[in-house]
Amino acid sequence: MAESAVLEGASAPADEAPIESFTVTLIIRRFDSEFDDEPRWVDYDVELFATDRILDALHKIKWEQDGSLSFRRSCAHGVCGSDAMRINGRNRLACKTLIKDLDISKPIYVEAIKGLPLEKDLIVDMEPFFASYREVQPFLQASGKPEKERIQSVAQRERFDDTTKCILCAACTSSCPVFWTDGQYFGPAAIVNAHRFIFDSRDEAAQVRLDILNDKEGVWRCRTTFNCSEACPRGIEVTKAIAEVKAAVLRGKPDVPKSDLVSA
């Protein structure tokens, strides 16, 4: 008993200084089609800790100041990909952007991602984004029926590891200047997810996907501005993946490592 009392005392000293908090100004681009013809910037002052995230600030505004503020979020921990938004002009996940990493001496600008139809406040219509995602056939296509599993070597798995990390948050696609002006362009996210299967040694439909991306609105529209690589919250090298798909289209097939397994 005595020992646990000591531990409790050590972990929560009564005279610990309170954690410093700051008043942060957020300027949010609000839009409600019922009342607004044009989106308008509205500012909010929020009391925040350095360890808070933009998502916490949005919660505070919604729960304590203005319940009409609309935004998407689901897991709130950078996995579901719901809360991609433009924070100070850069596409970020609100749940992964810490207050301490931003300059709070100036207001923080938050708006919806660009290039997709704005529905309300920070919510956009993601359907065009998912439509081009579906178009690249983002699923494994293999003909054989193995007894147990489809075996793959470590090197073969490594080949497309980077592009398996995509969470479909649309931060890359909506940061692409080509996508802004031409919504027909597949966009980085669709190409990343095509890459994930094109370079998978178990998949057999690489030719079909390369053919789809060889189209007028396919990989050749990419201008390698690197906005997508900079925007990706999962750190995927998006521009590199697109370049690899371009090279695969030119070569006619993807360079997938040969199996180094003893027996297949």
Binding site: N214, D215, K216, G218, W220, R221, K246, V249, L250
Partner: peptide, 9 residues
């Protein structure tokens, strides 16, 4: 003829 591809190349 895929003009986009050859143009890029």
């Amino acid at each position: 003829v895929n003009w986009e591809k050859w143009g890029w190349l």
